[in-house]
């Protein structure tokens, strides 16, 4: 991490994966989580196509290494603030698959008792301060959580996830300035999936390298290959260490790609099929699986076992969600006020 922003890494640059290491248990954990997220999202798409899941849902498939890598650098009681594309964050932060799936289907057994849904998915017990239906809606919350940590003298940090599209919201500037001025323990982690709904960065922003914006706040920044789970973990760990040691916030840009469109009604006319193929070739699960077998950390058989196990977990979550009861009508007006 450099004080001024690094030269931007071209999207999809291959990172030096072989230099990064993890234990066998960690490798299994990361792969399991990434597979859970992918299958959760593929399952969601299937449920939406069959109209079992109603309403919108913004899917995280393709971006798994960012959530899993970032969360691998956190302690369980650290906080995160999530986004409208938040299923992956919830899963990686330790949310229960059954409750998450049930919540998206609006069921009584959901983690928010069916009142939040996909856009407001939050398992508060895992330190997740919530997904957000408003782009950049979590910036204030995360910054305030950082303030709270500092004032209470806690040892926690906050990761504030948001997308490249959110970078042009005014509150991003307000919050980064505030956090930098007050040296709050917040990691602003931009999941740069290249498009704010349909508008490419180059069409919306003068400065295409988001990391450079940190200069305005005298905040360290770095850019990481968001398809490489270990690279994300290590880059996040550097930011976490910076925050936890009282040095304040930092900005981390993870270059990544969402496989599905912005939402289910998106025909993806703004990007080429060649570009999509390029990124699918850089699939985070495929890359990490290959890395693990290359260095002999996991066998093909072990990876297959993870694949089968996670498929079963998601099938179970879908069954649980479908079979769960809808909320009782008496729930309508509860929880408005404490």
């Amino acid at each position: 991490m450099t004080k001024s922003s690094k030269k931007d890494q071209p999207a999809g640059t291959k990172s030096p994966e072989s230099e990064l290491t993890c234990s066998k248990e960690q490798a299994q954990h990361y792969l399991r989580q990434m597979m859970h997220i992918r299958k959760f999202e593929d399952g969601m798409m299937d449920l939406m196509t069959k109209n079992i899941a109603q309403g919108g849902s913004h899917l995280y498939a393709g971006e798994e290494a960012v959530a899993v890598g970032a969360m691998a650098a956190l302690q369980p009681d650290d906080y995160i603030a999530s986004t409208h594309r938040g299923h992956g964050h919830c899963i990686a932060k330790g949310g229960k698959l059954n409750e998450l799936m049930a919540e998206i289907l609006g069921k009584a057994t959901g983690c928010c008792r069916g009142k939040g849904g996909s856009l407001h998915l939050a398992d508060v017990s895992t330190g997740n301060l919530g997904a957000n239906g408003v782009v950049a809606g979590g910036l204030g919350i995360a910054t305030g959580a950082g303030l709270s940590i500092k004032m209470r003298g806690d040892d926690k940090v906050v990761i504030c996830f948001f997308g490249d599209g959110a970078m042009n919201e005014g509150i991003v500037h307000e919050c980064m300035n505030m956090a930098a001025k007050w040296t709050l323990p917040v990691i602003y982690l931009v999941e740069n999936n290249l498009y704010g709904m349909s508008v490419a960065i180059a069409r919306s922003s003068r400065l295409e390298d988001h990391a450079k914006r940190a200069i305005a706040y005298d905040m360290p920044s770095s850019t990481v290959d968001g398809q490489d789970v270990l690279a994300v973990r290590d880059a996040t760990a550097t930011c976490v260490e910076h925050a936890r040691s009282g040095k304040g916030p930092s900005l981390l840009i993870a270059n990544t790609y969402r496989y599905y469109g912005h939402s289910r009604s998106d025909p993806r006319a703004y990007r080429t099929r060649e570009e999509e193929a390029y990124w699918k070739d850089r699939d985070p699960i495929k890359l990490f699986s290959a890395h693990c077998t290359d260095i002999g950390l996991l066998s093909e058989k072990e990876i297959q076992a993870l694949d089968a196990g996670t498929t079963e977990d998601i099938e179970q979550a879908i069954r649980f969600a479908i079979d769960s009861p809808l909320p009782d009508p008496s729930e309508l007006c509860t929880d408005v006020y404490a």
Partner: peptide
């Protein structure tokens, strides 16, 4: 604070849900 109304209230919310009474 700076002249940042959204951040003032936003940070107030974040502090409030994590144990403070701003």
């Amino acid at each position: 604070t700076g002249i940042s109304e959204a951040a003032i209230v936003g940070a107030g919310i974040g502090a409030a849900i994590t144990g403070m009474r701003p």
